[in-house]
Design a protein around this nucleic acid. Structure first.
Lengths: 115, 115
DNA sequence: TGAATATGATCTGTAAACGGATCATCGCTA
DNA sequence: TAGCGATGATCCGTTTACAGATCATATTCA
């Protein structure tokens, strides 16, 4: 009774940390130009399962997470909490050089932008 | 037959990447001065289960891995493979700072060193 | 229009990560 | 020697990440 008081994790109770990891995987997958099915095959799981993981619905096993990360060009690393700011700065910095300040649009007239 | 040719993952076939993660967790746990039981409680699992994970025998769920990492002062991060050398350099550097170039020995005379 | 592709979603079974209990072994200290 | 804490290890039952199949919903393109 009183399911609100239960400590049990329901299927609806999605961990935000899992969703965050799923979002990072999804972004890396799109950056790599891969479909869900391709990554699922590379990681040795099925597409429905990979979808659940990308959505943060399911908590993949560590071995599966390693395979997925590598398939999309990422690596799972355990970082001391004290070094997280430095690592974040490193990631942020490389993100900044990745993209120029404004992106060249392939198919719009010269007066289409920034109206 | 020819078990070497089989693609199947047996229970005996322990993934070295899992063992590596387990070793990192064990080292961080000892650095934090925590017992297996303490970390297991902090992570919300039982001690036998945590032992399996630390040994690399079992592949913890991602949610469990996150809880364990935080319990021992670590964080799970997804790093682009291209940035791994930089991150490794960062970890190596802070490891070097942790320990002075030579360790003061508690019980040796002044003429004992660098003979 | 329709075909092809990518993604969302649900179903039935199975394998493995979980809880909980139990016992053994090792190292340390009184 | 006995006692205690930490770790190694195995048992059974439950939960859930998995496989595999199926159907629906865009979206794109001929």
């Amino acid at each position: 009774m009183n399911p609100e008081l239960s400590l049990r994790r329901n299927a609806v109770d999605h961990d935000p940390a899992l969703q965050d990891i799923g979002a990072q995987i999804a972004q890396a997958r799109r950056s790599a130009g891969l479909t869900q099915e391709q990554v699922a095959n590379l990681a040795g799981i099925t597409r429905p399962r990979f979808r659940d993981i990308e959505k943060g619905i399911a908590a993949a096993r560590t071995s599966t997470l390693l395979n997925i990360a590598r398939a999309v060009g990422l690596e799972v690393m355990l970082i001391p909490q004290s070094l997280m700011p430095a690592v974040r700065a490193l990631l942020q910095q490389s993100d900044d050089d990745d993209q120029p300040a404004f992106v060249a649009e392939p198919d719009e007239g010269p007066d289409a932008g920034m109206g």
